[in-house]
Every structure is written in structure tokens, then in C-alpha cells.
């Protein structure tokens, strides 16, 4: 039992902490995207930040968090603005313009990753898609305080979670008004464009912080599902964010447990992909939550 506990603290706890921090970061911001009916913008950002991240690395030559953040945020904002411009310029359907731009950005990112210069970046395309929760270990080193041995992803994710919550709390009023009635925001002299750009930049930063650990697929799920799980039950924006974080955390823990511990119980040789399992549970919970609401109404 003691051995299990040690293994849990060393292997499962860091991964679980990373997934939960990513949930707080992306899940909080996802509420704004869902309220603005822009969930697919989240998907586009999740793909489009990749070339910026790699370029940040290539330019500075180091795995500096700041450079990769800057590159990725620029790429995310640029992709969405480009898609908007293409849509207006060509009168394409929004999905098509988004699709053209984000597939191009993502392909560029993969190509850059595979190029010789970026080989040391230690990020392969499969990790970009499915995350690397399984590789986050807690290395315990004698004579060193515990926090110096934490995987660097956890610190980045922690910063992202603080950023997402801080941004949402500080601009709660303005973001809610922007999502509810953009014309009113404009008419009363708020600067909706500026706030929209800020939301995009913050979302890009949080996506970047998250996707190295949890992968594109879970980022897409975290940006859409928790908010959609909460929306049928929420009576206020604040309430929706709270419900989305509580329900999302529970499903994240359940998904991780299902992927990490269930297979060995059934005699499978190794654990399953945790990010994928959490994404599946979150996605299934969306229709389930709507059904629950309908049942509660009926009862």
C-alpha cells in the first residue's frame, strides 16, 4: 500500500495536477467562448498556436517559456484575425475560412517541428495531439526542496490558471456584456474590439500553456465541454463558470483514473491515453447534462 502511495505521488499526482490546472485555465475561458458561440474559435486557436510556439523556440534557440508564449499568442491572434479577414474578403462561410487558416497554421507547425533545427525542442507531433500527461514525473532529489523538482509544465500551467481566473474576474462585467449584447457594449462606449483581442490573446496563452501537457484534443474539449455541461443549469455567468469548473474537475479525475488504473485491473498490459479518456468523458457529459436538466424540469 505504501508502495502504491509513493507511485501515486510520483507518477499520477503530477499528471492529475497538470490536467486539473489545464481545466481551470481552459475551462474558465471556455465559458466566454461558449457564451459568444465561438467554440470552434477555441479549436482553431488550439491548432494555430503551434507554429508560433516552434518559431519562438527557433528564434531564441532556447526553451524559454516567454519566447514560446509570445510566439504562440501572436500566432493564435493572427490566425483568428486572418480567418476573419478571409471570411469578409471572400464571403466564405465562417467554418471554411477558419478551416483554411487553422489547417495551414497547424501544418506549418508540424513541418517546423520536423525540420532539423527544431529537433531539440523535444516535442513530437503526436504529443501535440494527445498530450504527454504520462511523462510528467515527480523526481525526488535528496537535499532539495520539493518545489524545485516539479516538472516545469506545472509552473506554466499554474500561471495560466491564475491568468484565466484573474482575467475573467477582473473583466467579469465587461465580458458578460460583450457576450450578451455586443451592440449595447458598443453603444455605451465600451471598447468591444479591444476586449475581444485581449480575450483572444489570453486564450492563446492558456492554450499554449496547456497543450504541451494535455494535447490539442483535450484543449479543444476543455474549451467547449465544461461550459456546455454547466449552461443548462446555470442562472448567472458566475454560476456557469463555477458549475463548469466543479463538474469539469470531477470528470477530469474520473477520466484520469479510468485511463490509468482501470486497464491494469482488466489485465491490459499498460495504461490508456489519459487526455483522450478525459476528453471522451467530458464530451459524453454534455448531452447527459442536458438530459438531466430535461428530467429535472419534467419531475
Amino acid at each position: 500500500m505504501n508502495g502504491f502511495l509513493q507511485e501515486f505521488v510520483a507518477i499520477d499526482l503530477p499528471a492529475l495536477a497538470a490536467a486539473l490546472l489545464a481545466l481551470i485555465a481552459c475551462g474558465t475561458l471556455g465559458n466566454w467562448l461558449v457564451l459568444r458561440k465561438e467554440s470552434m474559435t477555441g479549436d482553431a486557436i488550439a491548432h494555430a498556436v503551434l507554429p508560433g510556439l516552434v518559431a519562438g523556440f527557433l528564434v531564441t534557440g532556447t526553451r524559454s517559456v516567454a519566447a514560446m508564449f509570445a510566439g504562440a499568442s501572436i500566432a493564435g491572434v493572427a490566425a483568428i484575425m486572418l480567418a476573419g479577414w478571409v471570411r469578409k474578403r471572400m464571403r466564405l462561410e465562417p467554418g471554411a475560412s477558419l478551416g483554411v487558416v487553422f489547417t495551414a497554421f497547424f501544418a506549418l507547425g508540424v513541418a517546423l517541428l520536423e525540420s532539423q533545427g527544431a529537433r531539440q525542442i523535444d516535442l513530437d507531433p503526436e504529443c501535440v495531439l494527445f498530450g504527454s500527461l504520462e511523462t510528467l514525473f515527480l523526481v525526488s532529489v535528496r537535499d532539495k526542496p520539493w518545489y524545485t523538482t516539479l516538472p516545469h509544465e506545472l509552473w506554466t500551467l499554474f500561471a495560466a490558471a491564475v491568468l484565466a481566473i484573474g482575467f475573467s474576474v477582473l473583466f467579469m462585467k465587461e465580458l458578460a456584456l460583450l457576450a450578451f449584447d455586443r451592440n449595447h457594449a458598443r453603444q455605451t462606449g465600451a471598447a468591444p474590439r479591444m476586449l475581444e483581442s485581449l480575450l483572444l490573446a489570453v486564450t492563446s496563452a492558456c492554450v499554449v500553456a496547456s497543450f504541451e501537457a494535455v494535447g490539442t484534443i483535450l484543449v479543444v474539449a476543455l474549451l467547449a465541454c465544461p461550459a456546455l455541461i454547466a449552461s443548462p443549469h446555470a442562472r448567472s455567468v458566475r454560476g456557469q463558470i463555477a458549475i463548469s469548473l466543479v463538474a469539469g474537475s470531477a470528470l477530469t479525475v474520473a477520466g484520469y483514473a479510468l485511463a490509468a488504473f482501470a486497464p491494469t485491473m482488466f489485465g491490459a498490459p499498460s495504461a490508456l491515453n489519459a487526455a483522450g479518456m478525459i476528453a471522451v468523458l467530458l464530451a459524453i457529459a454534455v448531452p447527459a447534462s442536458h438530459m438531466l436538466r430535461a428530467m429535472l424540469r419534467g419531475a
Partner: peptide, 8 residues
């Protein structure tokens, strides 16, 4: 023009 499903 307003989204009346908004949580408010």
C-alpha cells in the same frame, strides 16, 4: 437580437 438563453 438578444440571446435569451444567456445565464442571467
Amino acid at each position: 437580437e438578444i440571446d435569451w438563453n444567456f445565464p442571467a
